[in-house]
Each structure stands twice: as C-alpha cells, then as structure tokens.
Design a binder for these strands. Structure first.
Lengths: 144, 144
DNA sequence: AAGTAAGTTTATAATTGTTCTAGAGTTCTT
DNA sequence: AAGAACTCTAGAACAATTATAAACTTACTT
C-alpha cells in the first residue's frame, strides 16, 4: 500500500490512546494491524484477509493474534463484527450507524449510506430486554 | 429426467407435491424431517437440533441427510436460512416476510410480527443488481 | 413385475473457520 | 534492573459443515 491518509476518520483520537483507553497495550502487532485496518477508509475484512495483508506487508503476526486483536478491537468499540454467511465473520471499520448490501454472487459487502435506509417503526423489545443493535442486510443478486 | 413444474408453490399444497414440484423425490427421510419441521408451527432449528429430534423420534436419519435436506428445502423455498452467529445456521419454517429478535444472552431467535417493523425507504440497489431479500435482525440484551 | 438409470442415503473422512494451550517474549511499573 | 502482568506464537483442538464413494431407493420403461 503506498499512500497513508490518516486524515478524515471519525474519532480523531490517535490509535495509541484509544488502545490505552481500552486497557490494551499498544504493541507492535496491534499497531500494525490497526494501520492496515484504519489507514485506508472503511473496510470489511475477515481475519484471514487481514492476516494475509500483514504477511504481504512483511509483518510477522500470527493468525491467533489477528483473531485476538480483532476481538479486542471489537470489544473496545473500534470495530463492529458482522455475520452474514455461515462460518465467516467480517469486521467493519465503520462503526457509525449504517447497514449493508450483501452481494450473493461474490460475497462482497458494501455500506448502505445511513440516510438511504430507515426504519419506519421500531419494534418494542420484549419485557426486560433492550435493543442493543439493529442490523439490516439487503441481499442483492445479479439481474434486472 | 422429467420436467420440473415450478408452478404450484402455494403454501397449503401437501408436502409430497411440493417436493415433487421442486424435483425432489418424497423419500421417507425427507417426509420424516418435513413432519418434524412443519407439523408444529413456526420454528427456528439448526441441523444438529433437527438431527437430535429425529433420533429422539426413533427415525434413523444421518446428519449428512439432515444437512442435505435442509439445503434442498431451502432451495425449494420451503425454508429460509438465517445466519446470525458465526458458525451456526438456523432454518426458519416461516417463509413469509418477517424479521427477527435475537437474544444475545442465550442465542434465542423470535419472530418479529411483520407489521411491527417496517422499512421507511428501500435503498436503490447498485446497477445490474436486484434486491433478493432484506434481513433485519434486532439484537436484544437483558436490561432496562 | 423386472430391469434399469437416476436420484438418495449413509458412514466416514476431509475441510474450514475459529478457539485454546502453554511456553516464550514484551511491556509497564517500581 | 527486576518482577508482575500482559501479549504473542505455533500448533493442537474444536465445531459446524461439506465431500466421498459405496449401498440402497425410487421411478420410469418395458
């Protein structure tokens, strides 16, 4: 990857401080993965993908660490985990409120701009429960 | 190779005919599983669950057949596959348009009545693609 | 009803994505 | 600089699912 644009990301706090705030030490592995994740706009990555990218960037990070890091970042609110296909998790670097197109043809995921999809009415959650998140997946297939 | 009649998929057509219409032979295994699936109202089952139920009913059906059957029924439009947690598929016997509450606490799935949740606006699908389905998952957690 | 081709089932092996383990290596605090 | 706590790693373990290939059914043809 050539150019590094650290500019217009939502939260402007540097990643080192965000990790510290989450009680995570800013280790070289975490910083390297963070750079791959956050330095190039919104992404939807799987653990295997990110691992390959790290390898390609000649950074030695084990797959176990990639999984650990993705989960820790998710717990820290830096990532959002998406499950759409059985047996494969995607991690979304866009943590703002938004939804997804899922291309059945090739498994690609694309953000739906927040404004272009809205819920007319929110269902009332069952007694003793509160809504923690709403995921909308619009599956699209090739065709007219 | 006989011709496949895709025409008659009305919900109240007996299962044998619905299988035939889908080009599936009404074997004893398929009929047994269909009975477990469809004879007790709307259900959300996993393959392992259905397999256990068949065993409990003293019907010898292999796990591989349960998977095959669930997928064939899904392709035939008798079931709908839901993926919410990584590494586990649920099959929903309610194929009408509806959405789900997912209880993070225990992994339970509950239908949201169709009227109680509506989309205000449908996003326009990308060029050359059409919307094949919209899934809404309302994640709920214990709490006020 | 018998013969036959195509479809189906099964046990088992293989595969996939993910999590666990325990030891080695780092980081932070003092 | 030293100890404690945390983190990383390779590899084993795991769980859900899919593939394989042989045995068995079904439906079609005669």
């Amino acid at each position: 990857m050539s150019e590094i644009k650290q500019s217009d990301q939502r939260p402007f706090t540097p990643i080192v401080q965000r990790l510290r705030a989450a009680g995570l030490r800013p280790t070289s592995q975490r910083l390297c993965l963070a750079r791959l994740l956050f330095d190039q706009g919104d992404r939807h990555v799987t653990a295997e993908q990110l691992h390959s990218e790290a390898q390609a960037a000649r950074v030695a990070v084990s797959l176990a660490t990639v999984y650990n890091t993705l989960h820790q970042f998710t717990a820290a609110g830096l990532l959002r985990e998406l499950v759409i296909e059985s047996g494969r998790s995607y991690f979304d670097t866009n943590i703002t409120n938004h939804h997804h197109f899922f291309f059945e043809e090739n498994g690609a995921l694309v953000d739906i701009p927040g404004e272009s999809l809205a819920l007319a009415s929110m269902p009332t959650p069952p007694e003793g429960a509160r809504i923690s998140r709403v995921d909308v997946i619009v599956r699209v297939a090739r065709g007219k």
